[in-house]
């Protein structure tokens, strides 16, 4: 992946000066963490969401330089974590639902997918591992503001 002007052949006018740089990590993470097709695998990988939340919550009490020592400095600036509050309530609702689903699944002794919006696909679980730390019901949201509806 390169950045820079659009590769339009045959243009004559000098293109606007766009900054040249290698793809930066934040740009990639904005996309690979938050976007792309979301499907639950037959491992409950969606727990990652909650893991990210706990990291974030920990940051609330960690002083900034300590967070850096922990190597999670970047999350402090995670654009998807520091979005506005517009759909905080919606995200809270989703989060609570997800937590509820996870707990229900655990009670049933299954490793089902915790998200109502994701497909359950998969074979019988075999992992006995404890799931990640209990998510905390803090109003922390992972996703950036929902994509505006695509036009026509």
């Amino acid at each position: 992946m390169t950045t820079g002007g659009l590769p339009v052949p045959g243009r004559t006018a000098r293109p606007p000066e766009h900054r040249q740089e290698s793809t930066n990590l934040a740009d990639i993470l904005e996309r690979v963490l938050d976007k792309g097709i979301v499907i639950a695998g037959d491992i409950r990988v969606n727990l990652l969401d909650i893991e990210l939340l706990t990291i974030k919550i920990r940051l609330l009490v960690a002083s900034v330089d300590k967070a850096r020592e922990m190597g999670i400095d970047w999350w402090e600036h995670d654009p998807s974590l520091s979005s506005g509050q517009r759909d905080l309530n919606e995200e809270n609702r989703r989060l609570r639902q997800r937590i509820g689903d996870l707990e229900a699944a655990r009670t049933r002794g299954e490793l089902g997918d915790g998200s109502a919006s994701e497909a359950e696909v998969g074979s019988e679980p075999e992992s006995e591992e404890e799931s990640g730390p209990e998510p905390e019901p803090e109003p922390v949201r992972r996703r950036s503001a929902r994509s505006r509806e695509e036009r026509g």
Binding site: I28, R31, V32, K35, V38, V45
Partner: peptide, 28 residues
């Protein structure tokens, strides 16, 4: 993230491609 991204860039070069989010894992 970089490896995931790089493979997707390569995969998407010619055909319509839907990238998956990081860490989508299946048993087999």
């Amino acid at each position: 993230a970089r490896a995931h991204h790089a493979v997707i860039v390569e995969a998407a070069a010619a055909e319509p491609t839907a990238p998956l989010r990081l860490a989508t894992v299946y048993r087999d």
